[in-house]
Amino acid sequence: MMAMKRLLVEYKELSLRPPAGVAAGPAGDETNMLEWECVFLGPEGTPYDGGCFHSTLSFPKDYPLNPPVMRFTQPLWHPNVYPDGKVCISILHEPVEDKFGYEQSCERWSPVQSIEKIILSVISMLAEPNDESPANIDAAKMWRTDREAFDAKADECVRKSLGWA
């Protein structure tokens, strides 16, 4: 299985040199390499600072020809995260043309990308939401028009992620 081989290589690399504030690896025993867990610490200086956010990465059998699906397992108030937790950033989009030509200029998935690049994209997504093609329209609107309310909602997520709310 080519996907397993590649995922093992990436797992090894991520264990040796993990990106700051992130832990990622297979969710259960290592016989199922297609399901991963990934924990993010909310980056400093962002509304998510101090939070501890759990997510899952589900890889297709033909990874890395196609990208994994990433989903936060608790609510995350963010313009680029669907209310069900699914993360929507360009690097996680399949390589085929978008039906209506959106996101032409963004970097999409191809096998030269990696889990590490996804993680780095998520960290920068937390710091700088992209409100042009939002997954959560209400969050995007609030982020644009009422930053104070947005930060309060984000803080609520931080508290929930720590079991305080």
């Binding site: 080519m2 081989k5 590649r6 290589v9 990436e10 890395p64 096998p111 030269v112 990308q113 990696s114």
Partner: peptide
Amino acid sequence: GYEEVSIETFTDF
């Protein structure tokens, strides 16, 4: 500029 980790599965295969 390609990274070994993302291409070696393909070159090996």
